[in-house]
Design a protein around this nucleic acid. Structure first.
Length: 241
DNA sequence: CCAGACGTTGTT
DNA sequence: GTCTGG
DNA sequence: CCAGACGTTGTT
DNA sequence: GTCTGG
């Protein structure tokens, strides 16, 4: 699945890579971004049709929710049911987005202990995670914008630590997912599959990442104390700006 | 009809 | 808002 | 995802 | 054990 991720690239770099046109949102680099925190999200502007980069809170709050608590449970949406589930289907039809990241963390259960791993694209490129977003009317009249990350089965590589993974969209599908290019629901659902195993690199990282308050570049270093299975012990890529 | 849920993950 | 269960 | 709380009373 | 907060 996807419950924690990292993004050391700043908004200027992300905006350039995803070709967004609006003023840059404020975003500090984070090596430990958790649910309920802001995510850097690419959406299609409905009037101009151009891409915008904005901060949306991670953890989707449906339009009909009575309060915003409980959003921490809606951090992922299953691709298999996203078109039907009441909490997601409207967003699936009308409010799809890309949640940008440099990579995510995954915890592998090994007997009674849990070892965190970092997962990134093997070439170090930014990741476009398939996402949905919502606007929720707060009692004070304000709009709370939230998002969730779509999951699918793990590919053969990541299955060694977990049976689910976030959907990583290749560049040639961004237009359809964002609604820039025409696509039927059927075409969109076909995009929601695991990426090829050779596209991702994975390596063990320090359990410091468990604590949300820990947040520094050292979290991405290979954990010298960890014993990782072959296939989950890749060299970390470089994350060029 | 009204009331209550509306989600994912993992584990057994 | 909309569907399901009672 | 993991960590940390999980309660009441009275007092300031 | 289960929920909440980050």
């Amino acid at each position: 699945m996807c419950g924690r991720y990292f993004q050391q690239r700043g908004p200027a770099s992300v905006a350039r890579y995803f070709e967004t046109v609006n003023p840059l949102p404020n975003f500090a680099a984070s090596w430990n971004r958790a649910p309920t925190q802001d995510a850097m999200v690419v959406r299609r502007h409905p009037e101009t049709g151009l891409r915008h980069l904005d901060a949306l809170r991670w953890g989707l709050v449906p339009r009909w929710a009575k309060d915003a608590s409980g959003a921490a449970k809606m951090i992922n949406a299953r691709s298999e049911s996203v078109a039907e589930k009441p909490a997601f289907r409207e967003a699936f039809r009308k409010r799809r987005c890309l949640v940008t990241a440099d990579g995510f963390y995954e915890w592998r259960t090994d007997g009674k202990s849990k070892q965190p791993y970092a997962v990134a694209l093997a070439d170090g490129a930014p990741m476009a995670l398939a996402g949905l977003w919502e606007g929720w009317r707060a009692p004070d009249g304000g709009i709370l914008r939230t998002c969730t990350i779509v999951t699918t089965d793990a590919n053969e590589k990541l299955a060694a630590m977990h049976h689910r993974m976030p959907v990583i969209l290749p560049r040639d599908s961004w237009g359809r997912w964002l609604g820039e290019d025409p696509a039927e629901a059927e075409d969109l659902l076909a995009l929601l599959r695991p990426c090829p195993p050779e596209m991702v690199a994975a390596w063990p990282v320090t359990p410091r990442v468990n604590k949300v308050a820990e947040n520094d570049a050292g979290l991405l270093a290979r954990d010298p104390l960890a014993v990782a299975p072959a296939g989950l012990d890749d060299a970390p890529p470089e994350f060029a700006e």
